Deep mutational scan, measured.
Amino acid sequence: QIFVKTLTGKTITLEVEPSDTIENVKAKIQDKEGIPPDQQRLIFAGKQLEDGRTLSDYNIQKESTLHLVL
């Protein structure tokens, strides 16, 4: 699982696999929060994550925290 922290300070927990794409993660966030993926920007280690890449591409491991910017 990974954590996604929103600007409001809320933390969302997501069940993911390293092979999941960023697009996939955004879809999971939409399921939980109702935020359309095209409004979501995910930041990890100061980098904006691209939809077509996977979590493992960015070396995002379990218990990692991503930041969600709208």
Rank of each mutant, 00 (worst) to 15 (best):
2 I>G: 01
2 I>E: 01
2 I>Y: 05
3 F>R: 07
3 F>V: 06
3 F>P: 01
3 F>Q: 05
4 V>F: 03
4 V>W: 01
5 K>T: 15
5 K>E: 09
5 K>C: 14
5 K>P: 01
5 K>Y: 06
6 T>M: 15
6 T>N: 06
6 T>Q: 07
7 L>R: 09
7 L>E: 15
8 T>C: 15
8 T>K: 10
8 T>I: 08
9 G>T: 03
9 G>M: 04
9 G>R: 04
9 G>N: 06
10 K>Y: 12
10 K>C: 14
11 T>L: 14
11 T>V: 14
12 I>T: 03
12 I>R: 02
12 I>C: 03
12 I>V: 06
12 I>P: 00
12 I>Y: 06
13 T>P: 06
13 T>G: 05
13 T>N: 06
14 L>R: 00
14 L>V: 09
14 L>N: 00
14 L>D: 01
15 E>W: 12
15 E>C: 15
15 E>H: 12
15 E>Q: 12
15 E>F: 14
16 V>S: 04
16 V>I: 10
17 E>S: 12
17 E>A: 09
17 E>G: 08
17 E>I: 10
18 P>M: 14
19 S>H: 12
19 S>M: 10
20 D>H: 06
20 D>N: 08
21 T>M: 07
21 T>L: 11
22 I>F: 02
23 E>R: 15
23 E>A: 14
23 E>H: 11
24 N>F: 14
24 N>I: 14
25 V>S: 00
25 V>P: 00
26 K>G: 00
26 K>E: 01
26 K>V: 02
26 K>C: 02
26 K>Y: 03
27 A>L: 13
27 A>F: 12
27 A>W: 12
28 K>Y: 06
28 K>D: 02
28 K>A: 07
28 K>P: 00
29 I>R: 00
29 I>V: 06
29 I>S: 01
29 I>P: 00
30 Q>D: 05
30 Q>R: 14
30 Q>L: 10
30 Q>M: 13
30 Q>W: 14
31 D>N: 10
31 D>F: 12
32 K>L: 11
33 E>W: 13
33 E>S: 11
33 E>T: 13
33 E>G: 05
33 E>L: 14
34 G>Q: 06
34 G>K: 06
34 G>E: 04
34 G>N: 08
34 G>R: 06
35 I>Y: 13
35 I>E: 02
35 I>H: 10
35 I>T: 07
35 I>G: 02
36 P>N: 07
37 P>S: 12
37 P>I: 14
37 P>G: 08
37 P>Y: 11
38 D>M: 10
38 D>A: 15
39 Q>A: 08
39 Q>Y: 09
39 Q>I: 10
39 Q>D: 08
39 Q>K: 11
40 Q>P: 02
40 Q>G: 03
40 Q>K: 02
41 R>V: 15
41 R>M: 12
41 R>T: 14
41 R>Q: 14
41 R>W: 08
42 L>W: 01
42 L>R: 00
42 L>P: 01
42 L>G: 00
42 L>Q: 00
43 I>P: 00
43 I>V: 09
44 F>M: 05
45 A>W: 08
45 A>Q: 15
46 G>R: 04
46 G>F: 04
46 G>Q: 05
47 K>W: 07
47 K>P: 02
48 Q>W: 12
48 Q>H: 13
49 L>W: 01
49 L>S: 00
50 E>I: 07
50 E>P: 03
50 E>F: 06
51 D>W: 03
51 D>T: 06
51 D>I: 06
51 D>E: 09
52 G>Q: 11
52 G>S: 13
52 G>R: 09
52 G>H: 13
52 G>A: 12
53 R>K: 14
53 R>I: 06
53 R>G: 06
53 R>S: 07
53 R>M: 15
53 R>W: 11
54 T>K: 10
54 T>I: 07
54 T>L: 10
54 T>R: 12
55 L>F: 03
55 L>I: 09
55 L>V: 08
56 S>M: 14
56 S>P: 03
56 S>I: 10
56 S>H: 11
57 D>Y: 12
57 D>E: 10
57 D>R: 02
57 D>L: 02
58 Y>F: 04
59 N>K: 09
59 N>D: 09
59 N>F: 08
59 N>C: 11
60 I>W: 03
60 I>D: 01
60 I>N: 01
60 I>P: 01
60 I>C: 03
61 Q>V: 13
61 Q>H: 11
61 Q>S: 11
61 Q>T: 14
62 K>S: 15
62 K>N: 15
63 E>Q: 10
63 E>V: 03
63 E>K: 07
63 E>A: 09
63 E>R: 06
63 E>L: 10
64 S>E: 08
64 S>L: 04
64 S>G: 07
64 S>I: 05
65 T>N: 04
65 T>S: 05
65 T>Y: 08
66 L>E: 01
66 L>T: 02
67 H>P: 01
67 H>I: 13
68 L>Q: 02
68 L>N: 01
68 L>H: 01
69 V>P: 01
69 V>H: 12
70 L>I: 13
70 L>A: 10
70 L>D: 10
70 L>E: 09
